[in-house]
Structures are given as C-alpha cells and as structure tokens.
C-alpha cells in the first residue's frame, strides 16, 4: 500500500514538475529580461528585447508579475516618493514593453491580469491598458460583463483613465449603471463623468502622456 502511494506520488511529481518549472523559469527569465530593458543601451538590452518580443503574448503573464510589490519595496516607494503609486524598478519597463507590443493577444493577456489576486498587478495592468488606449478599449469594455464584480469595476476604472480613447465604451458604461454590484455602479458613474465632455484638459494630458511614453 505504502509502495503504491509512493509510486503515485512519484508519478504526480513527475507530471507536476515540468509545469512548475515552466512557469517558474519563464517568470524568472522574463523578469531578468525586463530588468535588462531598464538598463543602459547595450547588446544585453537588445537581446532581452528580442527574446521578449519573440515570446509575445506568452510573455504577458510573466511580464505582469513584474508589477507585483514583491518585485519592489512598496513601503520604501511610499516613503521616497510620498505616494504609494510609486512603481518598482521593473514596473515602467514592463508597462512600456506591453504598450509597445499591444497586439490583440497581448492586450487580452493584460486584461486578464485585471482580475489578478495581487492588487499591484491588477493596478498596473489597468494603468497599462489605459496607456495603450484605443487598442485596448474594446477588450476592456467587454470586461464590463465579466461574471466577477471586481473585474467589472476594474474595467470601468480603466476606462475612466483612458481619456478620449475610452469614449466608445460610454454605452456599455451606461448599462453598467444598472449593475447588481454597488461598487461597479459607482465606478461606472465616475467613468462616465470622466469620459463626458468637459474633461478635454484631462484627455489632452492623457494623449500627451501616451505619446511621450512610446
């Protein structure tokens, strides 16, 4: 009996090992490459960029993990910058990479991160989508019908940050005002107010920021 259990354990380990290794080593390799992107212009940076680009959408789950507070000391970010929205060293290169390679598959991967358990990952995934703008708007607006209320609220929040690029989502946001979840309704109402006329100064700033970050 014990021998059989041990054998089963061995088989389970043998099957689980590649999965664990794939994810862990891919995450580590991508983190290393994202860190290289933040470095000076040199061959190592070019190689890192080429590897990440070759991975494309496969890299996204690992790239968004670079947003996690585990990757930087959030407390020191708060202390140093006076705001908790201070990003870790890997956050900006990861966001820039995702923005520069915003194919539909990549956008879908970032949108999926809106529901991430790690709030930092969800937060910066949302900011990345707001950076991407028009190319991300349909996928984000579609998440207003996600079964998970937190994701619906995230989608509305991201649309509120998009500036003019988010305006095609206004009908979907109007529908979200009748959402069964109170938080979603409130965030949708805020998003509508941000995407309605009168916010042109904000839109212009978003446009300029988006252009500057490319």
């Amino acid at each position: 009996m014990a021998a059989r259990l041990l054998r089963l354990l061995g088989v389970a380990l043998a099957c689980a090992l590649p999965v664990l290794l794939w994810d862990a080593s891919l995450r580590a390799a991508v983190r290393r490459d994202v860190a290289a992107l933040a470095g000076p212009e040199d061959p190592a940076r070019e190689r890192a960029a080429a590897r990440l680009a070759a991975l494309g959408a496969d890299a996204v789950p690992a790239v968004v993990r670079c947003f996690s507070a585990e990757q930087h000391n959030a407390a020191s970010a708060v202390r140093d910058s006076g705001t908790s929205v201070g990003a870790g060293e890997l956050t900006t290169p990861a966001m820039t990479f995702l923005q520069a390679h915003a194919s539909p598959d990549v956008v879908d991967g970032v949108v999926a991160a809106l529901g991430d358990e790690d709030h930092d990952v969800a937060h910066f995934a949302g900011l990345t989508l707001a950076w991407i703008g028009e190319a991300a708007e349909p996928a984000v607006a579609a998440r207003l019908r996600d079964p998970e209320p937190r994701v619906r609220a995230s989608a509305a929040w991201v649309l509120s940050l998009m500036g003019e690029a988010g305006t095609p989502a206004l009908p979907a946001l109007q529908e979200a005002l009748a959402d069964p979840d109170e938080d979603v309704r409130h965030v949708a109402r805020f998003a509508i107010s941000q995407l309605s006329s009168g916010n042109e100064a904000f839109w212009e700033a978003v446009r300029a920021f988006r252009a500057g970050s490319r």
């Binding site: 708060v78 709030h119 930092d120 937190r150 995230s154 938080d183 100064a201 904000f202």
Partner: peptide, 24 residues
C-alpha cells in the same frame, strides 16, 4: 481603497482625486 483598482493607499492619497486643471 479604490474599488476597481484594488490598490490600498495611505489616507493622504485622497489628494489624487482633485480635478484636472482649473474649473471652467
């Protein structure tokens, strides 16, 4: 907490929600 964003911030972050630019 910003619902929809989920990130937790110190109370001082309330200043994030000021309007963008002067009012008309």
């Amino acid at each position: 907490i910003l619902p929809g964003d989920g990130r937790r911030m110190p109370l001082s972050e309330i200043a994030l929600f000021v309007p963008f630019g002067p009012p008309p």
